[in-house]
């Protein structure tokens, strides 16, 4: 941000919001990361901890809302300050949802314990999760550095997530076709994959919010949309051949 405000305490309040967003980001990321570990290592103790920690994000979101509303009421912020404050409210909602995704993934650990597969079975899900989390890291970093260039770069990567989601979807479907005994675990994993794909969407939302904070307008072009799972069918040939 440019020069300091004449009223210094205003800067402190804005710094507080930015710091809180960074904390929420870190916490949400950590939850997702560990929810995936819990799945891969079949660690229901870890999963329970992730589920219990979701409340931290709920509270942080409420805290940000309250502080932001207070600043609006007391300081009547204008221009970039107003955009920053409204942007903070939006970003905290996206981060809270990312935490929920982590919680949802962690909740499936208990149901999957009975039907545990070897670690290699989860390899692609893990890779997919790291891709989505990298997206989140980049967007939070770009926000902290107030870098428009990096924000726009993040949006470009959204299609990678969609492409990987589609391929993971196909892969899981093919396992189910080949070994019906895999259906339960694969269905759970499909939901996990969907949750991870949503994390990518929330990261993109945050990127758009940061773009708005920095420029005063939302990015013009439609975000790239390559999630093609809606057209992946059960027919074996199509699962493997479509869009190859």
């Amino acid at each position: 941000m440019s020069a300091q405000h004449i009223v210094r305490s205003f800067d402190k309040e804005l710094d507080y919001l930015a710091k809180k967003i960074a904390e929420m980001g870190k916490h949400a990321r950590h939850m997702v990361e560990r929810s995936i570990s819990a799945i891969v290592q079949d660690d229901s103790f870890l999963a329970d901890r992730v589920i219990a920690e979701d409340i931290v994000l709920d509270e942080a979101e409420r805290d940000i809302d309250e502080k932001a509303i207070l600043i609006i009421a007391l300081r009547q912020p204008m221009a970039v300050d107003l955009r920053e404050i409204v942007g903070t409210i939006r970003m905290s909602a996206d981060l809270e949802r990312i935490g929920d995704m982590g919680k949802n993934i962690a909740k499936r650990v208990a149901a999957m314990t009975e039907i545990r597969q070897s670690a290699s079975f989860y390899k692609n899900l893990e890779a997919f999760a790291s891709l989505a989390l990298r997206q989140l890291d980049e967007v939070l970093d770009a926000y902290a550095k107030q870098s428009l260039e990096r924000i726009d770069a993040v949006r470009e990567h959204d299609d990678e997530i969609d492409a990987m989601y589609t391929s993971l979807f196909r892969e899981l479907l093919s396992y189910m076709v080949e070994y019906p005994s895999n259906i339960t675990v694969c269905t759970h994993l499909l939901f996990c994959a969907k949750n991870i794909e949503r994390i990518g969407d929330h990261a993109t939302n945050i990127a758009e919010t940061v773009h708005y904070i920095l420029t005063g307008y939302y990015p013009l072009s439609e975000r790239p949309k390559d999630d093609q799972t809606y057209e992946v069918g059960l027919d074996k040939k199509r699962i493997f051949q479509k869009n190859v």
Binding site: S2, A3, Q4, H5, I6, V7, F10, P77, M78, A79, V80, D81
Partner: peptide, 10 residues
């Protein structure tokens, strides 16, 4: 303009 309306002048 930004500096003035956001209270950052001077």
């Amino acid at each position: 303009t930004q500096d003035y309306i956001t209270g950052r002048f001077g």
